[in-house]
Amino acid sequence: MALADHFRELRGRLMRSLAVFLVLLIVSFFFYDRLLDLVMNPYNDARKALGADVQTKAYIKGATGPLMLNLKLCSMAALVVSAPFWLYQIWAFILPGLHSNEKRWTRVFVAIAGPLFLGGVGVGYYVLPKGLEVLIGFTPSGLDNLVEFGEYFSFLTRMLLVFGIAFEIPLFVVLLNLAGVVKGSTLGQHRSWIIVGTFIFAAVATPSTDPISMLFLAVPMTGLFIFSEVIARTIDRRRGRSAAEAALDDDTASPL
């Protein structure tokens, strides 16, 4: 295919993705109240847990704040819901240039990466109220804590993205093993340091400073890493048996 044809195909896929996004954006306006409740639930749970010890209240800043809140929230919802479509468009654009074995592993990656990311986002949403409770709990007595929604929404999205991306790391470890870059035995030799690095990463990556959020990120990541090490060792053993069988076949076929 000529370069111009590639650009036309890319433009077509981008336009289709944009059209789906705009349709979902319009639909999301009708569910604005439910989306707002979904986003505010972690903050409301944290406020209930704090009780009368800390007075906190969420607010919207500026005359254009309510409109920007509506657009930002609905745009994020449309982007997330349309993700399967525009991710497929990216994959379909790249797919013709891949070999058959690369296509197979790409399908495996797509099948596993999505559930892992959603699992990480779910864990992040579950621990978010505790993180907010700890952070807002530092408010000195006699002072009220005012939470600007724009900053809160940015904090929430960062938290969920960190958890979602972190859950993808073991998958990349397996892919590196399949590519022959990392061996399972090497992972086992450095397991203790990798676990320490995982906890350090969790402490630095989580936007909140409470140990609960760090543990909820570090413990599943550690479990997923150990699971990926087991898979890597299994792949190495199979690869070793295949190489031994191939060498034996060569020796058998060679003339005496």
Rank of each mutant, 00 (worst) to 15 (best):
F85D: 03
L160G: 04
Q189C: 05
I165G: 06
E9K: 12
F199Y: 10
N70T: 15
T198D: 01
P42M: 03
F29L: 14
T206V: 11
H6K: 11
V110R: 12
P115N: 10
V27A: 13
F31S: 11
A244Y: 02
Y125H: 14
A203H: 02
I165W: 05
R13Y: 10
G223I: 11
F93I: 08
I195L: 07
R241H: 15
D33A: 11
R238C: 14
L256K: 15
L224T: 02
W193Q: 14
S141G: 10
T64E: 11
R13C: 00
A52C: 00
L87G: 09
T56H: 04
A2D: 15
D236T: 09
F163G: 06
L35W: 00
V80P: 01
R16E: 13
R239Y: 05
V27E: 03
L38G: 10
R233S: 10
A111V: 11
G184F: 07
N177M: 08
W91R: 12
F201P: 06
A2Q: 05
I169P: 04
F117T: 09
D5M: 06
I90A: 13
A202E: 12
S185C: 07
A46D: 05
S185W: 14
C74R: 06
G240M: 10
T64L: 14
F155M: 11
D37Q: 12
Y125K: 15
V204F: 13
N101E: 01
I195K: 00
T198Y: 08
G114A: 13
L69M: 15
P115T: 05
V219A: 14
R104V: 02
L116P: 07
S192T: 11
R8N: 08
G122Q: 11
T186D: 00
F30V: 10
F7E: 07
M68W: 13
G142P: 03
Y126K: 09
Q55H: 12
A63Y: 03
R11P: 00
A244T: 14
N44M: 12
F172H: 03
E245N: 14
K72A: 09
G142V: 08
A92I: 02
M1Q: 06
V181G: 09
Y59P: 01
R241D: 13
N41S: 12
L161C: 01
H99Y: 13
L171A: 10
A232Q: 06
D249R: 15
D45P: 02
P220C: 09
L3V: 09
P211R: 06
P129K: 05
L38R: 01
P96F: 14
I60L: 14
K103L: 05
F163W: 05
V127C: 07
A111Y: 12
V196N: 10
P207K: 01
A77G: 02
S185P: 06
L215D: 00
F149D: 03
E102Q: 13
L178T: 02
L67Y: 14
F149G: 04
G51F: 01
S17M: 07
